[in-house]
Design a protein around this nucleic acid. Structure first.
Lengths: 143, 143
DNA sequence: TTGCGTGCAAAGGTTTTGCATGGCA
DNA sequence: TGCCATGCAAAACCTTTGCACGCAA
C-alpha cells in the first residue's frame, strides 16, 4: 500500500492517465522513462516494476495478461467508477469498453442469486473484437 | 499444431483429463512428471513446456493467468462443448463453472448486436468466488 | 525412411532483491 | 528526524532454445 506521494509516482501516474486508452508492459514503461523528459527526469527500472504493482493494488491501474508471451500489460483505469458493470476488452486495439447496460447488471445479479457465484468484476474482462476493428478488417478484405 | 501422437502427450493429457477440476502450472507438471509413474515413465521439463502450449492451441487445455506471480495455469477443458456460453472461475478453489443459462447467451447476443462487440468466450472468464467457498468462509468466521 | 518429438543442458530475458543513498511527511 | 522509496547492479526465476538421439507414421 502506498504511503508517500513521490515525484516518481506522480510522473508515472500522470503518463498513464494521459493515455487511458493504451496499455503498457513494465518493460515498455522502463524504456520510456529511461530517456529524460522535458524536466530531465528519468525513472529507474526497479522503481517502475515496484510502482505498477503498487498502483494496481491501489486500484489506479488495471493489469491484463499478455495474450501471448509472459507478463502483464498495465492500463490507467480508476476502479471507483466501475462497480456494478462488466468490461469488454478488444484484443486488436486494446480499447476497454465499460458495459454500462441494464442487461449486464442483471446478469451479474442473476449469477449471484441463481448460480451462487459472486463475480468480482474488477478482476473480470470479456475479450473480443470491437466494432471499429471489425470494420477495419472488412475494409482490408475488400482491397 | 500437433502431428504425432506420442507417448508423452498421451501421458500428460490423461493426467490432466483425470483432474478436470484442477489447474497446474508448467512448473508443477514438470515436478510431477520428474518422478517415475507406475510404468517408470518420466517427462522432461522442456517437453512439458512444449506440450502445454500445443495442447492449449489444440483446444484441449485452457490457460489462465496466475492471479499473482508470473506465468500461467493449465486446466483440462475441451473447447468443443463450450461454444455459446460463458465461464465462471473461482479464485479460491479453481473450479470452472459452465454458465449454460439463457440469460448468459442472451447477454452475449445483446453485446454483439447493441454494443457492436464480438465476444470471444473461449478467451473470456468471469472471476469470483463460488458458493462452496463462500460457505466455507462463513463457517471459518463462525469458529 | 523421414522428419517431428524428446530430453538434456545451456542460454535467454524479464522480474525481483540487497543495499546504500535520497526524499517525503 | 524517521521511515519509506529509489536506483543500481547482481541474483533469481521461469521459459526457451540448440543439438543429438529416438520414435511415430
Amino acid at each position: 500500500m502506498s504511503k508517500y506521494q513521490t515525484e516518481q509516482k506522480k510522473l508515472l501516474t500522470a503518463f498513464l492517465k494521459s493515455h487511458p486508452e493504451k496499455q503498457f508492459s513494465a518493460e515498455q514503461l522502463a524504456e520510456i522513462f529511461a530517456v529524460e523528459d522535458e524536466e530531465g527526469a528519468t525513472l529507474g527500472k526497479s522503481t517502475i516494476y515496484r510502482l505498477v504493482v503498487q498502483l494496481t493494488e491501489d486500484g489506479i491501474l488495471r493489469r491484463f495478461p499478455k495474450q501471448q508471451g509472459r507478463g502483464w500489460l498495465y492500463q490507467y483505469h480508476s476502479e471507483s467508477d466501475c462497480k456494478g458493470h462488466l468490461h469488454l476488452k478488444c484484443t486488436k486495439c486494446g480499447a476497454l469498453v465499460h458495459l454500462e447496460c441494464g442487461l449486464s447488471s442483471e446478469l451479474l445479479r442473476h449469477i449471484e442469486k441463481n448460480h451462487r457465484f459472486a463475480v468480482d468484476n474488477s478482476a473480470s474482462v470479456l475479450y473480443g473484437v470491437c466494432g471499429k476493428c471489425t470494420d477495419e478488417k472488412k475494409r482490408e478484405n475488400r482491397t
